[in-house]
Amino acid sequence: MQIVRAYLRASTKEQNANRAKQQLQDFAAQHNLTITTFYAENASGATLNRPELMRLLSESSEGDILLVEQIDRLARLSNEDWDKLKRIINDKKLKIVSPELPTSHVLLEKEASFTSVVLHAVNNLLLDLLAATARKDYEDRRRRQAQGIQTAKQQGKYAGRKEDLSKQTAIKSMLKDKHSYNEIIESVGCSRSLVAKVSKQLKEEAA
Rank of each mutant, 00 (worst) to 15 (best):
T12M: 13
T37V: 09
N42V: 03
E205R: 09
M54K: 15
V4I: 14
F38E: 09
E41K: 12
T133N: 06
K21F: 03
F27S: 00
L202C: 11
G189H: 14
S180M: 08
L126V: 10
K203P: 05
K157V: 11
A43W: 03
K84N: 15
A170D: 10
S187P: 01
A131Q: 05
D26Q: 05
Q168K: 06
Q25A: 10
Y138H: 12
I184P: 01
A43R: 15
R87W: 06
A112H: 12
R19P: 02
E205Q: 12
D26I: 02
S173P: 00
S58W: 04
D177S: 11
Q70P: 02
L165I: 11
R142S: 04
E163D: 15
A43F: 09
L56A: 13
L130G: 00
Q23P: 00
R5G: 05
S116F: 09
L85K: 10
I185S: 09
Y158E: 07
A206E: 12
A134M: 04
S60E: 04
Y138L: 07
L53C: 04
Q25M: 11
L194I: 09
K93A: 09
M54D: 12
S58L: 09
I3R: 15
D164I: 05
L8Q: 03
K167N: 08
Q30D: 10
R142N: 12
A170I: 07
Q145R: 10
V188T: 02
Q150C: 00
A43M: 07
F38A: 10
K110P: 04
T34D: 01
N42F: 06
L107G: 00
R50W: 05
N124V: 03
V188S: 00
E62L: 08
S11F: 04
R73L: 01
K172R: 12
L56M: 11
L66K: 03
K153Y: 02
A207V: 14
N16Y: 15
